[in-house]
Computed example of a mutant assay.
Amino acid sequence: MQDYQRPPTLYRYGMRSELELALSSGQFRLEPANGFLTLPFSQVWDKHLFEVLGPADCCLVIHNSEEFGERLHRAVQRTLPNWAGIDGPVEYGARSRLGLAFSKLPAHAREKEWKFAWRSLAPQAILNPVTVRIGSIEQFAELRSPESYPV
């Protein structure tokens, strides 16, 4: 389910070793948060986010968020067939209509987060981190270092 137009480009700040796996094999780790399994990105290329979202020494830049999002949702659906997925912008200082997983305090507004999230359709589901693989995304993504940020 998609309620929002994805931004054309998504940014994931992290450690190079993790992001190299994301680029080459499409490996992503969904983490539990507020009753969902989530995978956050930023909608902005901002040198300060290396520190804010760190530890980070690299940024995965996804230039085709539509292709990426569809592949990610399909992979999670195969891995977790009884889960419902959604993605959308995080709202700062207000409760998002998408739920608590998409709501943050105004102090975090600089992150301009776009989040992918999945919720179990089974009541009382145990939330553990889940790793999914969507295949190489090298044809529409790249890694950038903080040094490549324009001055």
Rank of each mutant, 00 (worst) to 15 (best):
V76I: 10
R6L: 13
Y4F: 15
L121M: 12
V130W: 08
T79Y: 02
E70F: 13
L121H: 06
H73T: 12
Q124I: 03
L121S: 10
S120H: 06
G26S: 04
R78M: 13
V130A: 05
I86C: 09
Q27E: 13
R74S: 10
G88P: 05
L19N: 03
L143T: 03
A22T: 08
F36R: 04
R12E: 00
R78F: 14
R78H: 14
G135E: 07
R12V: 02
V132S: 01
Q77L: 10
G88H: 08
A109F: 08
M1A: 12
Q2R: 15
W45E: 11
E113W: 09
P123V: 01
F28C: 00
E147D: 13
L72Y: 03
V130D: 03
L127D: 00
P55V: 05
Y149F: 13
R12L: 03
Q139Y: 06
S65K: 07
E91L: 15
E70N: 14
C59I: 05
W118N: 06
R12N: 00
E70V: 13
N64V: 03
P129R: 06
S17W: 09
D57F: 01
S65E: 02
E142F: 01
V132P: 05
N128R: 15
P81Y: 00
P8A: 03
E70I: 14
P129L: 04
F140P: 02
Q27W: 01
E20D: 11
G69W: 05
W45L: 12
V151R: 13
V151C: 10
S145P: 06
P89F: 11
S96P: 07
E51Y: 13
A33Q: 15
L80M: 02
A101N: 06
K47H: 15
G69Y: 06
C59F: 04
R95Y: 14
N34P: 03
V132L: 00
P129K: 05
S136A: 00
P89K: 12
P150S: 08
P129F: 04
A141F: 05
S24C: 06
T38K: 10
C59T: 08
T131H: 04
E18S: 12
M1N: 10
E51P: 07
H48A: 15
E70R: 15
E138L: 06
R29C: 11
R78C: 12
S136R: 03
G99N: 05
H63K: 13
T38F: 04
K112C: 12
Y92L: 07
I62Y: 05
V61S: 07
S42T: 03
G93C: 09
A33N: 14
